[in-house]
């Protein structure tokens, strides 16, 4: 009995300590985002390389997925709308569902799978190899040099790629709606504009940036939890990191929906 209570207490303390460390690191990173020191030549180089691998290199695949996805989703949704006689809801479906929900979700999954896991492994390897110790010895702040550029990349990539995804799906919608409803480009644009809401767009952009923040922060934290000189801790760190990233994605998705519909 006592052991059970001890175990619950230990788990609670661990959760509290982990959460505290996470929040402190998150706060530290957010503060450094506004610090000039974090924008030195070395950090810029890390940002450019990270951004290249996260957003530019993935672009052809990403656009291909967006076009395929756009065609599929638009085709199915338009057909269902037409059958139900709910054509008035076309704009709401595109703006309220595809742009605000689907685009950020697909983008965050793609970035988390590709870059989140890479960041997690990279930080874990640096920790195991004691490269983080090197940075400390040479007075290089890991938050400025390693974390801020990665978090910034995550946030910016999410905003840009998600917007690009939305635009691609909406442009694909022109052809699909023309084929199914015979809608002209002007009518289609009018329908979209009628349903577009600037506050919603702002919320989506904030949501994307939040996604970007956490899908890079969590892998960083999990990578830092790897044990020095213990190679086997690398896959464990990556695994834990990706599970937590998935949980974070679900939580942010739910919270953003609550904010939008309140």
């Amino acid at each position: 009995m006592i052991k059970t209570i001890e175990s619950i207490g230990r788990s609670s303390i661990n959760i509290f300590v982990t959460l505290r460390a996470t929040l402190l690191l998150a706060a530290g990173i957010i503060l450094r985002l506004f610090s000039r020191r974090a924008y030195n030549s070395a950090s810029r180089m890390v940002f450019i390389n990270q951004f290249y691998f996260t957003s530019v290199q993935i672009l052809p695949l990403f656009l291909f997925v967006a076009v395929i996805f756009g065609t599929m989703v638009n085709g199915m949704a338009f057909q269902v709308i037409k059958n139900l006689g709910l054509t008035d809801y076309l704009g709401r479906l595109l703006m309220g569902f595809v742009v605000t929900e689907i685009a950020p979700f697909v983008t965050v999954l793609l970035i988390a799978l590709r870059s989140g896991s890479a960041i997690n492994a990279e930080i874990a390897v640096m920790k195991v190899n004691r490269e983080l110790n090197t940075l400390k010895i040479f007075n290089i702040d890991v938050i400025d040099y390693l974390f801020v550029p990665r978090v910034m990349t995550g946030m910016l990539s999410m905003v840009l790629l998600s917007s690009l995804f939305s635009m691609t799906v909406l442009v694909t919608g022109i052809f699909i709606s023309s084929a199914i409803f015979g809608t002209s480009v002007d009518d289609y644009t009018g329908i979209l504009l009628k349903s577009a809401s600037l506050p919603d767009i702002v919320i989506v952009l904030i949501k994307c940036a939040t996604f970007g923040f956490f899908i890079t922060l969590i892998p960083i934290i999990r990578g830092l939890n790897a044990s020095e000189e213990e190679l086997t801790s690398i896959p464990v760190a990556v695994l834990n990191g990706m599970v937590r990233v998935f949980i974070a994605i679900v939580i942010i998705e739910v919270l953003s929906s609550i904010i939008r519909f309140i």
């Binding site: 030195n40 030549s41 070395a42 390897v125 190899n129 490269e131 110790n133 090197t134 040479f138």
Partner: peptide, 28 residues
């Protein structure tokens, strides 16, 4: 020192240049 290894995901010249890039904000 072996306790301060080179950064494995940086090229050799980047490892050397890193110190001045960071501390003196020296252009790449």
């Amino acid at each position: 020192s072996m306790d301060a290894p080179l950064i494995s995901n940086l090229s050799i010249w980047s490892n050397i240049a890193l110190i001045r890039q960071y501390h003196q904000n020296m252009p790449l």
